[in-house]
């Protein structure tokens, strides 16, 4: 709980501000560090170097450029829906951050069904993408929107199934409790590392990361955007500020999904509790509220590095191959994972 002296409206204000920071700060960092710099290095160039030291203000310059651009809307587009679409996509990101815990007391909401909520709101962005594709009155956008809808629905399922393994092992759907279970747990009587689920749920982690990759429409699953086929997919007709919102949403969602994955599989904000002799979640020292977010951030960066590394290396699948991969490989694998986890849970 936050300090009691802060009135309720103050708490709400703090949470809103915190939410905006928690979404936009990772998004900006990801864009600069990975999209501008890492991609350039992987292609043996330096990336932006002019705006600020080592091009660190490039993103500010880009935002300035987008804000100046004309807001173009096709004449035949469904104007109201067309304007709504990017906001829906961004809203999904903000809703998602609400359940992510950053420290023992640093959270926005402490839901008992956090996992359930997270999986539900993450699919809201599908709606935004679909209506963006439909409202643009463009054939490429329509194809992109339909592809996105098919893809995101197909990959929602392995994601849910992959998380179920974690839920079975932790015995709770509360994300805070999952973090606690990982850091207080022990492996075969040894508690030096806690029990991060990436070790016991490695299959689940892999399926989850593949599903995240598809959910984020990053290569090799980027056929909704597919700039060489569909020009820019559902974003083709968007320009200026509206495109900027899509752009922010893309990378903010990458950050938030990485945060969720680090909570589910890497032990979230915590360090193994045995290091400091903490016994329960109330015993955790207060300074973890400051250190916790930093730990989360570094874990997130690691996972985003993985996502982006794959993105900059692989070519993309075809739409039907992607569906086949989801239904014939990922879903059976994650179902088997659930079964094995359940059996082991009962046995031990």
């Amino acid at each position: 709980m936050l300090a009691i002296t802060i009135p309720y409206w103050g708490q709400s204000l703090l949470r809103v501000l915190g939410g905006i920071v928690a979404v936009l700060l990772p998004a900006g960092t990801i864009v600069y560090l990975f999209l501008f710099k890492m991609m350039s290095f992987m292609q043996s160039r330096l990336g932006p170097m002019e705006a600020g030291p080592y091009g660190s203000l490039q993103l500010v310059a880009e935002v300035g450029k987008w804000l100046q651009k004309e807001d173009i809307m096709p004449e035949r587009a469904d104007h109201r829906i067309f304007k709504m679409a990017p906001l829906i996509v961004l809203t999904s990101t903000f809703l998602l951050i609400a359940v992510v815990p950053f420290g023992p007391d640093a959270w926005f909401t402490n839901f008992d069904v956090g996992v359930f909520y997270m999986l539900a709101v993450s699919s809201v962005s599908v709606l935004g993408i679909l209506i963006a594709g439909w409202a643009s009155a463009n054939k490429y956008s329509l194809l992109g929107g339909l592809r996105a809808a098919g893809q995101l629905i197909a990959y929602e399922l392995p994601m849910v199934l992959a998380v179920i393994g974690v839920v079975i092992q932790a015995g709770t759907m509360n994300l805070q409790q999952i973090v606690f279970a990982q850091n207080a747990g022990e492996m075969f009587g040894w508690n030096g590392l806690g029990n991060p689920y990436i070790l016991t749920q490695f299959v689940g982690f892999c399926v989850f990361m593949v599903a995240v990759q598809a959910e984020l429409t990053q290569a090799p699953f980027d056929m909704p955007i597919a700039e060489s086929e569909l020009v820019s997919g559902y974003m083709t007709e968007y320009s200026g500020f509206r495109f900027l919102i899509f752009f922010i949403a893309e990378f903010a969602t990458a950050g938030v999904f990485a945060l969720v994955a680090s909570v589910l599989f890497l032990g979230g904000w915590g360090v193994p509790f045995s290091w400091f002799g903490w016994k329960s979640i109330d015993g955790v020292a207060n300074w973890m509220n400051v250190v916790g977010p930093i730990i989360m951030f570094s874990k997130m960066m690691l996972l985003v590095f993985l996502i982006m590394w794959v993105r900059f290396t692989y070519p993309r699948f075809r739409e039907d191959q992607l569906q086949r991969f989801a239904w014939k490989v990922l879903i059976p694998v994650s179902l088997a994972n659930i079964m094995v986890t359940a059996i082991l849970k009962v046995v031990f």
Partner: peptide, 9 residues
């Protein structure tokens, strides 16, 4: 290959 290029850069 990509990681190698990044390290070389």
């Amino acid at each position: 290959v990509t990681l190698n290029t990044m390290l070389t850069t």
